[in-house]
């Protein structure tokens, strides 16, 4: 009961944010936080719940982004109309990568996903129809409202919020159904899970495919907002790392972990880019590296888990005190 009150309060704040902080910079910042929260929440399904750390999720992000731009460029579709195409392609690619690599344990899966992502970047860089090294652009002027091309970030903010709520809703449903339990069991101890009849390979693949499909939606939204995609922004390893770090920093395997991570990292990056200008681009890598080390060393289960544990400890301490006082 208390938890739902808190959640409603936070949701109300999130809905009101772009109206309370009505500057273009802060609205755009809010929209970006939500966009990356979508991608990180999608990653969380396979990386957080199932414990299969994909470092190549940008492939799916790129799939969604490229599908929307390519179908606009070649067929004149509104960019957002190609979302199902991007999802289908991502799910197909996830199956192709997942079937051979999800048998690999631990780091080998991660390395395989990096290899595939880099391969995809190189291939796309050499395909003219996908804009090669230059990239693809969306509509310069909106033809209809369906092009979703706005100068203000406000419409994007609410669009991203709606998509994020769908992704989180799906994750919440999953968390409380058999597949969610099975994924956590596989993450904890795959051998034991299999002894209880859990088809570990199949469930990991399901998680990977669902995660891939949702990540591609984030890619399509990114391309729609920026109206442009190139191999670096759409398929660069930095985007993979960014998605992963947001989930890990906030709390992998927790429903709201990726959102917390995005709410910390996106402003950090935007502000450092603004302060440092173009020179800051390389520094981003250094910052990410440092964050990876700090999370791995001090908060392997993420900041949200830390806060939740502290709250739980404080609660039990205060209830202990109440018991003592009563006695």
């Amino acid at each position: 009961m208390k938890r739902s009150v808190w959640l409603l309060l936070i949701l109300a704040l999130v809905v009101a944010y772009p109206l309370l902080f009505a500057t273009p910079f802060l609205q755009r910042l809010g929209a970006l936080v939500l966009l990356y929260a979508i991608a990180a929440s999608a990653w969380n399904i396979v990386g957080g719940y199932a414990g299969q750390v994909s470092v190549g999720h940008v492939v799916f992000f790129g799939c969604g982004a490229y599908a929307s731009m390519a179908f606009y460029t070649h067929f004149g579709w509104p960019p957002i109309a190609a979302v199902p195409v991007g999802m289908m392609a991502s799910i197909g690619i996830a199956a192709l990568i997942g079937v051979p690599t999800l048998r690999l344990s631990g780091h080998y899966f991660s390395m395989a996903t990096i290899a595939v992502a880099e391969l995809a970047r190189l291939i796309v860089t050499n395909i003219e129809a996908l804009g090669a090294a230059v990239g693809l652009s969306g509509p310069v002027m909106p033809r209809t409202v369906f092009d979703l091309s706005f100068t203000s970030a406000l419409p994007y903010y609410y669009l991203f919020l709606a998509v994020l709520l769908v992704v989180l809703g799906l994750t919440y449903w999953m968390e409380n159904s058999r597949i969610g339990f099975y994924l956590r069991a596989i993450k904890d101890n795959e051998r034991a899970a299999r002894s209880l009849g859990v088809q570990a390979g199949r469930y990991k693949l399901y998680a990977y495919m669902i995660s891939a499909g949702l990540t591609s939606v984030a890619g399509a939204l990114y391309a729609t907002m920026y109206g442009f995609i190139d191999p670096d922004s759409g398929l660069g390893i930095l985007t993979s790392v960014k998605i992963l770090i947001m989930a890990a920093l906030g709390g992998a395997g927790l429903l709201f972990g990726p959102l917390v991570g995005a709410a910390i990292l996106v402003p950090l990056e935007e502000i450092s880019n603004n302060v440092l200008g173009g020179k800051g681009a390389g520094l981003t890598f250094v910052v990410y590296g440092a964050i990876i080390m700090i999370i791995a060393r001090f908060y392997p289960s993420g900041l949200l888990r830390l806060v939740l544990d502290r709250l739980a400890a404080a609660n039990s301490a205060s209830s202990d005190k109440k018991v003592r006082d009563a006695a």
Binding site: R178, R184, D188, R191, A192, S195, V198
Partner: peptide, 25 residues
């Protein structure tokens, strides 16, 4: 069904959740 010589419980899950994994079969 089996048990293991060195216990292979799902360490981060609750006792109830551990047993639910079995029941979900």
């Amino acid at each position: 069904a089996r048990s293991f010589q060195v216990p292979q419980t799902f360490e981060t899950m609750s006792v109830l959740e551990n047993v639910m994994i079995g029941a979900f079969l």
